[in-house]
Amino acid sequence: MARSVLDFSAFSHSVSSEETHLIESLVAQYGAPLMLLDCDSIRQQYRALKAALPGVTLHFALKPLPLPAVVQTLLAEGASFDLATSGEVDLVAREGVPAERTIHTHPIKRDADIRDALAYGCDVFVVDNMNELEKFIPYRDQADVLIRLSFRNAEAFADLSKKFGCSADGAIEIATRAQELGIRIKGLSFHVGSQTIDPTKYVDAIHACHEVMVRIAELGLPAISTLDIGGGFPVAYNDEVMPIDQFCQPINEALACLPDTVQVLAEPGRFIVAPAMTNVASVMGQADREGETWYYLDDGVYGSFSGLIFDHGDYPIISLNQEGERFPSVLAGPTCDSIDVVAEHILLPKLNNGDLIITRMMGAYSSATATDFNFFKRAQTVVLNDIALENRMIG
């Protein structure tokens, strides 16, 4: 049965009869809960960002959704990849990604992590302190290094500059020390934070990095040839965000101020995959509590909804059954833990056991952080619109 007709990007607060039939047929075939991965959405998101950032090489950050189908879809689109662990190195190696299309951006690494990446052929790494720089002394003839700067962003989902990155002066000290050690500094990098709503965060960081480039040149150190502007490009969950072409316009203007010799990279993750995954959970029981109906689903925060805990998730949720009056309701997960609540105080029609709940925008930091807590197995992933293999089940 073909699975190329489901367009999750078109979902609003209703589901067409055709979409309903397909979802129900998938549940009948595979059971629930399910995570439905739409490869067409991945292609659309990648192409949109590529068009919005012309001349920028996009390295997809595997962290939010490290699945073979995602890698294969983006590889066919010509994408490059951002790796952070030896497990991610293994994944792209198995999927046939050329090593020259990868970078390794975890600022803190074990020696084994460096050796694993180099053995694969990935030879661009990130550091943000002297201790990390000195780890490359044995590999100075094999590796190129990017220095990561810190730009705090309290408004982001995750302020990644709290944990990683150095100051401008710190970057100069690292570059100077690298020259003494014979370690090649290829460029600079930064990450302004996940789900960044304001593009001026990137603009300010780009200008600050340009100033560091000038200072490095004035010291007679090797010229900076690369700037990695990280990820964090926003997607719309329940709130609207700026269209990506409009969002990237000031970023492009800032990048135009850099020397023509500087190659620009980016590390999009959430933007590429968040809209591509839709969760289908079924009602396994219900109870009336304090004036609300509690519906207990077969998926929850220890499973696909882990992003509610780890990623500040705010996912659009609808019932496949849209008929009848709506009542105050709670959606809870299946485990015996009281924290396992998906949504509270929402209006839903009267549901029956077995009815389906559809949750969109679940491609980023959901199944990637799911567990089998309480021995509730995590949702199976069904891949849709996969050119290589149109339908594929992932355990």
Rank of each mutant, 00 (worst) to 15 (best):
S14A: 07
S16C: 04
E18M: 05
A32C: 11
D40N: 14
D40G: 07
R47C: 03
A52N: 12
L53I: 06
T73L: 03
S80T: 12
F81N: 11
G87Y: 11
E88I: 10
E88F: 10
V97N: 12
P98L: 10
G121Y: 01
V126I: 13
V127N: 05
D128P: 12
P138K: 02
Y139R: 05
R140K: 00
L149K: 00
A154D: 15
A154R: 14
E155H: 09
E155N: 10
A156L: 12
G170A: 02
A178N: 00
A178S: 00
Q179L: 00
L188R: 02
D198E: 08
H210Q: 10
I216Y: 04
L221S: 01
G232A: 13
V241E: 07
V241H: 08
D245E: 14
Q246K: 10
N252M: 09
E253R: 15
C257T: 15
L265R: 07
P268H: 13
I272G: 05
T278W: 09
T278G: 06
G285D: 14
R289S: 12
T293C: 15
T293V: 15
Y296W: 07
D314V: 09
P316S: 14
P328E: 00
P328T: 03
S329I: 08
S329V: 08
V330S: 03
D340S: 03
D340Q: 06
T359M: 14
S366I: 01
F373L: 15
I387Q: 06
I387S: 05
A388T: 00
A388Q: 06
